[in-house]
Amino acid sequence: MRLPKDSAVVTIPSHPKYLCVVREAAARMADMGGFDASSVEDIRLAVDEACSNVIKYAYGGDSGKQITVRFRNSAAGFEALIEDSGPRTDPACLKGRDLDEVRPGGLGMHFIRRTFDVVAFDEKKRNGNRLRLLKYRDRGHEDRHTGT
C-alpha cells in the first residue's frame, strides 16, 4: 500500500506497554509537521489518551487486539486517525468528568479536546471505530509554511 505524502501508519497490539511506541510516533510526526515543542507534547499526550481509551473501553482491556493510527501532516494541520475493531463507541462518551470534581479518572478526554480542534468518530466505519483527531495550524505558521 502506498502511503499519502507526509504520512505514517503505526499498528500496535492493544497492550499498554506499546503506548510508548504510538505516542513517540505522534510526537515525531507533529515535530516534522512544524508544530512547536509545547504543541508536540500536547499531541503526544492526547494521542496516548485516545489509544488508552481504545484499550480500556473499545477492547475492555483485551491486549490481544490491534490499534492502527494513521498520521498525516498537511497545510491544514496534524491529523491522527485511530482505528480499532471493538464494538461501536457511543459518541456521548467523548466527554470528560467535571474538572471541579476531584476523583480518579475522567481526564483523558479533556486532554484530547484541549489539544485537537476536531474530535469525532467516523460514522461511516462499519466495523469497529475510527476516531479522527485534527489540530489546525495557526495562521501565522501556515503563512510561513506556504510562503504567502
Binding site: S52, P104, L107
Partner: peptide, 16 residues
C-alpha cells in the same frame, strides 16, 4: 519526563 491521566488518577486516589 511524562505523565498521562492514569498516572494523575493514581495520585488523586492516593490523596483521597
Amino acid at each position: 519526563s511524562y505523565i498521562d491521566s492514569s498516572g494523575i488518577a493514581t495520585f488523586v486516589e492516593g490523596l483521597k
